[in-house]
Computed example of a mutant assay.
Amino acid sequence: MSAETDSNKIEHKEHFHGSDLEKIEKIYGIKKEDITSFSANVNPLGISYKLKKELASHIDAITSYPDREYTSLRKCIAKYAGTDYTSVLVGNGSTELISLVIQIKKPSKALIVGPTYSEYEHEVALGGGRSHYFRLREKDDFKLDIEGLENALTSDIDLLVICNPNNPTSSQIDRSSMRRILDACKEKGIFVMVDETYVEFSEDTSKITSIPLTEYYNNIIILRGISKFFAAPGLRLGYAVCGNHELLKEIDSRKNPWTINSLAAIAGEIMFKDTDYINETWNLISSERKRICGILEKCHGLKFYKPHANFILIKILKDGITSEELFDTAIRQGLMIRDCSTFPFLDNKYIRFCFMNPEDNDKLVKILLDKLS
């Protein structure tokens, strides 16, 4: 039965992740190939131009084991990220590295700046620890209260987790503020894990990334991946930057050998050098972020919070309209947004969507304006 004929019978009880296209297909009767995902936060340009052109010529690499140290890849990442390759560790996506850091640190009490990605809390719980949240408040437009966080950093906290820019709020912390946080954590013996999955989309990555701080602080590790900016979640390649080389050795010793296959390692070296693709991505997201915000600020039925990543958080102000209803309306037109009601501290008045190509963005914005104006 098609989505159109069954529209009155479907109850929206599921909350979908950007990778849940098979579920969408089953419930709504829409082919996953026909869905434009504004939920996955993935670069709309697709994979690196050079990668698409060159990777096939390296197919013979699968006949041999990768370099166990991944030295060439780490040097390439180091040049891209502006650090020394000895401070770089690679893993099977940033998710593996998040898990390994938490396993090693074994926090009995973690403080997570949120609402944010649920995997942090999940990993802490797997290790028997407890997670507490330092809340980003709507009244502050979800900007971090640095002084408030400093006061919340008590000596019984083992681990502080920050996503910067943060998902789903798209808010960010500048490096001088991060330095204040690190100083406070240093005094109390707190280790800091910073997830920079979205930092390359920021207006000025060089002022936001905490990578330069790893030269001076041994209580911070920074995690990044290629799933979002480089549109390659299927390659499962992530990396950590940390000045604490003893910790890096311990993480490396816990990893299975060769967690990154030969083609993924080669792909990383190709994409990190594709400056045309990198610049075009940044220009597209920057221009669309500004353009879409300019349109949305004229709509009185919603409020948006200044975005710094490649996605935007919106609060529904119009009475009688919920995030479930907006999701349902959009998906029936093949556009998948994120219902944010499952995030801590958010409810069914919040949605999130990423910036795609202008034509797709216009389709989604029209739906929102039609429902919320």
Rank of each mutant, 00 (worst) to 15 (best):
F230A: 05
I59M: 08
P44V: 08
G148A: 08
G93A: 07
D252F: 13
G82P: 05
H300E: 12
N256K: 08
G238L: 14
L317R: 11
T86V: 04
G29E: 01
R137T: 15
I211R: 06
C293A: 02
S87Y: 13
K366H: 12
D370P: 06
I270K: 09
G29K: 10
T329L: 15
I47K: 09
I104N: 03
N218K: 13
I351Q: 01
V101R: 00
L346W: 03
F272G: 13
V124T: 03
G82A: 08
I77A: 14
A184K: 10
N310H: 05
F355D: 07
E54T: 00
P257S: 08
Y80S: 04
T205M: 05
R291V: 13
L284T: 10
T83D: 12
I266W: 01
P66R: 00
A309K: 02
K105A: 11
S323P: 15
L100G: 00
I221F: 06
D370E: 14
G29Q: 03
A61Y: 07
R179Y: 09
T197V: 12
Y198C: 03
S253G: 06
E215H: 11
L247Q: 06
L111Q: 12
I221Y: 02
T63V: 15
E215S: 15
L369H: 01
T95I: 12
I102V: 13
T329C: 15
A267D: 04
K306V: 03
W258L: 10
H12N: 11
D319M: 09
S57H: 00
R338C: 11
K31E: 13
R352L: 12
E250I: 14
F191E: 02
T169K: 03
D84R: 06
E359Q: 07
R130D: 07
A231L: 05
D339M: 11
I30E: 05
L326R: 03
M193R: 03
L55D: 06
R175K: 13
F230S: 07
E215V: 06
E11W: 10
Q103A: 06
A232L: 08
H58K: 10
R130L: 10
I278T: 05
D276G: 15
I47T: 07
T214F: 05
D319K: 11
Y305C: 02
Y80H: 10
L159H: 10
I211H: 04
L213T: 05
L247G: 08
S171L: 11
K75W: 09
K143A: 02
K23L: 15
I251A: 07
G129N: 02
K306W: 14
